[in-house]
Design a protein around this nucleic acid. Structure first.
Length: 599
RNA sequence: GGUCCCGUGGUGUAGUGGUUUAACACGCCUCCCUGUCAAGGAGGAGAUCGUCAGUUCAAAUCUGAUCGGGAUCGCCA
C-alpha cells in the first residue's frame, strides 16, 4: 500500500503517530519558509505542513507542488498551534508535519477547480467527468447511490429474492419506446435490441419457479432526453409469484421506508404510503403523478361556468368538454404581468387560454362579494352570483385567485396539473423536507388513441384486468381497470408495476383488444404465451427507477447529477465522444451500408 | 419535429453599433513572505467574443443560417 492512513482519519487521539498518506494536492498555501498543503483523498482533507527545520528536502519539493498532483507524504501527526485549529475540518485540530514527500504523478492545471461551489458548463464537466467526480459532492453521490443499491440487495436477499442477470442483447418488440439496436455479424440484416426493461424475462423466470427475482437492471430507450430521462437508465426490477397487489406494495413500502429513513433521516416521509385510485387522482389533481406535498386541488365547474354569458365556457360545455379550476391562495392581487406569465405558461402546456378571477381581499366574505371586488378578463360575462357560486364550489376566499381552464378533459387536466405545480413553486408551498410517497392504483388497462383510432395499452400489455372487469374486455374495453399501480414521489413517477396476466387465453384476448394480429403476437410474445401453457404461477412485480430515487435522496433535479457518466440532452457522451462512426471494415463485417440523411 | 434561454481568456461573468489597445473575479506564471486554511503582497502572461454568411464607413454588439449546452412540448407501453 502507498498509504497506511486515510486523510480524513487523524484526530487528537492519534497525535504523535508516524503515518504515510497519499492523495491529491487540494490546495497549497506557500508562506515561503512555511508551506501548507491540503491533501485530499476519498475520506476527506488533511492539512500537511512543511517546515524546513524538520526536512529541508521535503520543504523544497513542496514548493513545486501544484493542484491535483498525486503525492505520498510521510510525517508525524501533531496537534495544531493554539488558535490555528480549523473547525470546518474533521481533522482540523491536527496536522501532518511532513518529513518525506514523493510525487507519484504530476497534473496539468485542471480545467475547473475541484470544489463543490463551482458553476461550470455541463459539457465541460462531462468532458472532464473524471475530474468532476473528484468533487466532494460527486463523491458523496457515488457513495449514496451505492448505499441505496446495497440496502436493496440486503433487504431483498433477506426476503427471499434471487438476483438474476438477463440478456442485454435481445429482440426488438417495437411497441412502446424506440429500441436501441445492435447489428448481428453472424446473421446479416438481423439485429438485436437492447431491453427497454426485462419485462418478459422476469415473467419467464416466474414460470421457471424462481418465485422471487430482482435485478438492478440497465434499461434502454431511444427517446428524447429530459432532466429526468437518460437513454440508458437503471431500474430496480423485481417480480414475485403467488402474490396479490397488496403483497407487492407491502414489500416496496418496507424497502423504500427503510431507504428513506436510513439515508434521509431528517425528512418527513409518508408512512404508510398515501393511496389514491387513478380516478381519484385525476379528479383531485388532474394527473396520475400528483405532488401531494401541497393542496390546491382541482374542482370541476363545467355546469356553473356554462350558465354564465361567457361564450368560451358555453362552447366548451356544449361540445362535451370540461371546465375545471383551482384556487391560488392569496394571489388575488396579481397584476397584469403575473397573470400574463401564467397564461403563457398555460399556453405552453397546450391551453388555448387561461381564465382567472381575482377576488379582492377587501371583500368581507364571498356572500358579501361586490362588483368592485372582482377582477377578471371575463368580468362582463360573469354575474356576481356566478362568481359567488364559482368561489363556493372551488373554495376561493377573498384575496384568492381562481385559475380556470376549459377544453377537452385531457387537455384541461394536463394544463391545470402543470399549473398547479408551477403555482406551488411560485408560492413556495413545498416543504423540501417533506417526502410524499403515494400509490396510484386501479389504472384503466386501455386508453383510446385518437391518432391510430384504436385501443392502446395504458401502461403495458401484460397487466391483469381486474377479475370483475373481465366481462367488459370485449364489449367496453375503456371500462376495464387493471391491477396496475404506480409509485409516485413528490410528483414524479418512481415506478410502475402490476399483477400480470398468467393465462394464455386472457393474454390473447387483451392482445385482441389492441388489435395485434396473430403473426405479430407470435413474433413478439410467442415465448411468453408458450410458457403460460406450461404451468405459469400467478405473479406480479414492479420496475422502480433508481436514478430518480437517488436524485430525490441527493436533492438533485436532474438524474445526470447522480449518474457517473451520463449523456447530454442530445444523447452524446462528451468524454468518449460517443456515438461515433465506425470503420468501413466494421460496417462491412456487419453487412451495413450507411445512408446519410439529406442536407 | 416545435418553442424558449444560453455561448466573450482555463473557469464564471460584465460589456448589447464607435473614446474597448475587450473589463472584472477566480485560476495560471514569476518574485517576496514561518501559522495559513477561499492565506497575503508585488508584478506578469493569457480571448481574432462558438462557427459561417450578411447589413454597415464601423459588428462581441444588428440580421440570417449553422453548431454546441440547458429547459420544455411532442415522444417516453
Amino acid at each position: 500500500m502507498y498509504k497506511d492512513t486515510n486523510c480524513g482519519e487523524p484526530r487528537e487521539s492519534t497525535v504523535g503517530s508516524l503515518i504515510t498518506v497519499a492523495g491529491w494536492v487540494h490546495r497549497r498555501r506557500d508562506h515561503g519558509n512555511l508551506i501548507f498543503i491540503d491533501l485530499r483523498d476519498r475520506s476527506g482533507l488533511l492539512q500537511v505542513v512543511f517546515n524546513p527545520e524538520y526536512s529541508e528536502a521535503a520543504h523544497e519539493l513542496a514548493g513545486s507542488l501544484r493542484s491535483e498532483w498525486v503525492v505520498q507524504i510521510t510525517g508525524k501527526i501533531v496537534r495544531r498551534l493554539p488558535g490555528a485549529e480549523n473547525p470546518e475540518l474533521p481533522t482540523g485540530t491536527v496536522e501532518l508535519s511532513a518529513t518525506k514527500i514523493v510525487v507519484l504523478n504530476k497534473s496539468l492545471t485542471p480545467p475547473f477547480e475541484v470544489s463543490d461551489d463551482i458553476d461550470v458548463d455541463d459539457n465541460t464537466r462531462l468532458k472532464y467527468r473524471f475530474i468532476d467526480l473528484r468533487r466532494p459532492k460527486m463523491q458523496a453521490m457515488l457513495k449514496l447511490r451505492h448505499r441505496v443499491t446495497h440496502i436493496m440487495w440486503d433487504f431483498l436477499t433477506e426476503n427471499g429474492f434471487t438476483q438474476i442477470e438477463t440478456p442485454i442483447l435481445l429482440k426488438s418488440t417495437p411497441e412502446g419506446a424506440r429500441d436501441y439496436v445492435v447489428p448481428s455479424r453472424v446473421h446479416p440484416g438481423q439485429f438485436y435490441a437492447l431491453p427497454q426493461s426485462p419485462q418478459q424475462l422476469k415473467q419467464l423466470l416466474m414460470v421457471s419457479g424462481v418465485e422471487r427475482y430482482f435485478q438492478i437492471a440497465r434499461s434502454f430507450r431511444d427517446e428524447d432526453l429530459r432532466a429526468d430521462r437518460q437513454p440508458e437508465f437503471t431500474q430496480l426490477d423485481f417480480e414475485m409469484s403467488f402474490v396479490h397487489q397488496d403483497d407487492v406494495m407491502a414489500i416496496v413500502e418496507e424497502l423504500y421506508l427503510k431507504i428513506f429513513h436510513e439515508l434521509l433521516p431528517d425528512a418527513t416521509v409518508s408512512d404508510p404510503f398515501i393511496r389514491l385510485s387513478y380516478t381519484e387522482s385525476m379528479e383531485r389533481f388532474g394527473t396520475d403523478k400528483p405532488d401531494l406535498r401541497f393542496g390546491m386541488e382541482l374542482t370541476t365547474i363545467t355546469e356553473t361556468a356554462a350558465t354564465s354569458d361567457a361564450r368560451v365556457f358555453q362552447a366548451v360545455a356544449s361540445s362535451g368538454g370540461t371546465i375545471r379550476g383551482f384556487v391560488a391562495p392569496g394571489c388575488g392581487n396579481y397584476g397584469r404581468r403575473d397573470t400574463d406569465r401564467l397564461t403563457d405558461f398555460a399556453k405552453s402546456s397546450g391551453a388555448q387560454g387561461l381564465v382567472f378571477i381575482a377576488l379582492d381581499e377587501s371583500a368581507p366574505s364571498i356572500d358579501a362579494l361586490e362588483d368592485d371586488h372582482i377582477k377578471s378578463p371575463l368580468k362582463k360575462f360573469l354575474s356576481i352570483d356566478i362568481v359567488k357560486q364559482l368561489a363556493n364550489e372551488t373554495g376561493a376566499k377573498p384575496g384568492d385567485l381562481m385559475l380556470i381552464v376549459a377544453g377537452t378533459s385531457r387537455l384541461v387536466n394536463t394544463v391545470l396539473s402543470n399549473l398547479r405545480n408551477e403555482m406551488a413553486r411560485r408560492l413556495e408551498l413545498v416543504d423540501e423536507n417533506d417526502v410524499s410517497l403515494a400509490w396510484i392504483y386501479d389504472f384503466p388497462l386501455f386508453e383510446w388513441d385518437d391518432d391510430l383510432n384504436k385501443w392502446e395499452p395504458a401502461h403495458h400489455v401484460f397487466s391483469s384486468p381486474k377479475a370483475e372487469h373481465m366481462q367488459y374486455l370485449d364489449t367496453d374495453p375503456g371500462k376495464v381497470l387493471a391491477d396496475l399501480y404506480d409509485l409516485v414521489c413528490n410528483g414524479q413517477e418512481m415506478g410502475s408495476g402490476s399483477i400480470r396476466i398468467h393465462d394464455k387465453d386472457i393474454q390473447t384476448r387483451v392482445f385482441g383488444v389492441i388489435d395485434y394480429g396473430e403473426d405479430e403476437i407470435q413474433d413478439r410474445f410467442g415465448q411468453l404465451l408458450t410458457a403460460f401453457t406450461y404451468g405459469a404461477p400467478p405473479h406480479g412485480g414492479m420496475g422502480l427507477g433508481l436514478d430518480r430515487l437517488v436524485a430525490i435522496l441527493a436533492g438533485e433535479q436532474a438524474i445526470r447529477e447522480v449518474i457517473a457518466f451520463p449523456k447530454t440532452q442530445s444523447a452524446v457522451d462528451p468524454l468518449f465522444e460517443a456515438p461515433a462512426i465506425i470503420t468501413d471494415q466494421q460496417l462491412e463485417e456487419l453487412h451495413i451500408r450507411v445512408v446519410m440523411p439529406e442536407n
